[in-house]
Design a protein around this nucleic acid. Structure first.
Length: 432
RNA sequence: GGAAGGGUGGCCGAGUGGUUGAAGGUACCUGUCUUGAAAACAGGCGUACCGGCAACGGUACCGAGGGUUCGAAUCCCUCCCCUUCCGCCA
């Protein structure tokens, strides 16, 4: 949620920014409800004040008089009228309030679909082959690394058995990325190279719960019941669609001392996505699955450093792509594409020779205080004051770079050359 | 799944119907002392909402929701969570 006071003070701007994101929220109705709600609240407060006065009088005299009891009963009746009225308005108010998306930063391109995203830079050249490159599905199936037919028998479409050296390679990549993120020197260098004003604390690896309760999941602003999130039918639990969704709420209802910031985690979970509305899209291989493993950076900062933290995460992503030797581009997502909780969103797209185009492998989300306002995660500043913590999340590694390696490192014989940085994590194997 | 105990301020912890928004400790902030720090001493210190330029005032909040009562942290009901033991189990 964004600050209600901000909505009161800037209704037109909030309308405009919401529309730019493709959100239809009735801001006028929200403001109308808001003022009715406040009026009722102060009425109720006044009635309660009189109740407390009455109680106070009784306290002083010791024994209540008939008169005082009568007044108490009257007050109670009055409250029993006003309170349900307030609760009703409050519920409607909150319903609308929750729909207001985060405000995009001014440097986020305004656009109405992902076609309006802006390519910020391109690094590396699309890989050239002196043979016709295959796509990752062809390579993996020929090697016996990918079996979707049997997975379909067991779990349905968009599931897969990944096997053999592909699994080894996946784990090697995870270990490679973890070894980077937990290395203070690596973080320190990125901060210096990018002129960021940040602490060089490394990321702490986390294996979080893969599920979250409804209330908690909703607070992340990421619960998408219709299209994305799986529900566990017998429990009040949802399967995470990203470790972000179970990492961001970690400090629910807590106050973090500013001296502990930044807190940087890299959470690893299996992510689950319904992918409703994508029927027939990306059906080949394992580009778009109901289930995949992902490492996600999640950090908690104060408000001053959250933007730099966003840039750090992008720098981490780029650095990993570079070391893996993958051609990629950096895309500034437009207002329509960054998502409700985001103030800014940047994608890394990798070049896939098998498709002859760039495909998204990483996202970096600057959330500011949108999630923490609802999660009530605050920071005790050095001067003793409180502010809402800021969060950033970003992909450290999904299974899509694996696809990129198969396609960019394939040989004419159908083998795959192991990228140099991964060889130590592959038991020395140079080709698979 | 069975049994027992418990959820109070940043943290620990008193408190079983009315001067308890909450003792005490600790942490934190300020001051005295000190070359500096520590220690000691003194003072300060919850959050949210509403009103006010402000000083300040009002209301709410003792896991959540409901109830009893003139009045609830305290009594009753429902739910959630945690701890311990037993059972089952990677």
């Amino acid at each position: 949620m964004i600050d209600i006071q901000y909505i009161r003070d800037n209704p037109d701007l909030v309308k405009q920014k919401s529309e730019q994101k493709g959100y239809k929220v009735d801001i006028d109705a929200l403001i109308e409800l808001d003022s009715r709600r406040r009026k009722l609240q102060s009425e109720i407060d006044t009635i309660r004040e009189s109740r407390n006065k009455n109680t106070d009088d009784i306290k002083k005299s010791g024994k209540p008089t008939e008169e005082q009891i009568k007044r108490g009963v009257e007050i109670k009746q009055l409250l029993s009228q006003k309170e349900p009225e307030f609760n009703d308005i409050d519920l409607k108010w909150l319903g609308l309030y929750k729909q207001v998306p985060n405000m995009s930063l001014d440097d986020v391109p305004v656009g109405s679909s992902e076609d309006d995203n802006v390519v910020a830079k391109i690094v590396g050249e699309p890989t050239k082959f002196d043979f016709e490159p295959k796509n990752h599905a062809e390579i993996a199936e020929a090697k016996g690394w990918l079996d979707k037919e049997r997975a379909a028998k067991v779990a349905g479409s968009r599931f897969a058995y990944l096997m053999g050296d592909l699994v080894m390679l996946d784990w090697a990549m995870n270990m490679f990325v973890l070894s980077k993120l937990t290395d203070r020197k690596f973080i320190s260098k990125l901060i210096k190279d990018n002129n960021l004003d940040l602490d060089d604390k490394p990321f702490i690896p986390v294996q979080p719960p893969a599920v979250a309760k409804t209330e908690v999941y909703e607070a992340t602003g990421r619960l998408n019941k219709e299209e994305q999130t799986y529900k566990l039918a017998d429990d009040d639990l949802w399967l995470n669609a990203s470790a972000e969704h179970v990492m961001a709420p970690i400090y629910l209802n807590e106050i973090i001392n500013e001296s502990q910031l930044p807190i940087r985690y890299v959470g690893y979970t299996t992510a689950f996505r319904r992918e409703a509305g994508t029927y027939g899209k990306d059906m080949e291989g394992f580009l778009r699955m109901h289930q995949f493993n992902k490492m996600e950076m999640e950090s908690f900062t104060n408000s001053e450093t959250s933007y730099d933290e966003h840039l750090l995460m992008i720098a981490v992503q780029e650095s990993i792509m570079k070391e893996l030797g993958l051609p990629y581009r950096v895309v500034k997502k437009c207002t329509a594409d960054i998502g409700g909780p985001n103030a800014s969103g940047v994608d890394i797209d990798v070049w896939l020779p098998g498709q002859g185009k760039y495909r998204e492998t990483h996202t970096a989300d600057l959330i500011t205080d949108y999630q923490t306002r609802r999660m009530n995660t605050r920071v005790r500043k050095q001067d003793g004051s409180l502010e809402l913590a800021h969060t950033n999340d970003a992909t450290a590694l999904s299974q899509r770079p694996l696809i990129a390696i198969l396609e960019n490192y394939q040989t004419a014989d159908g083998d795959v050359v192991v990228p140099e940085v991964l060889i130590p994590f592959m038991g020395g194997k140079e080709i698979i």
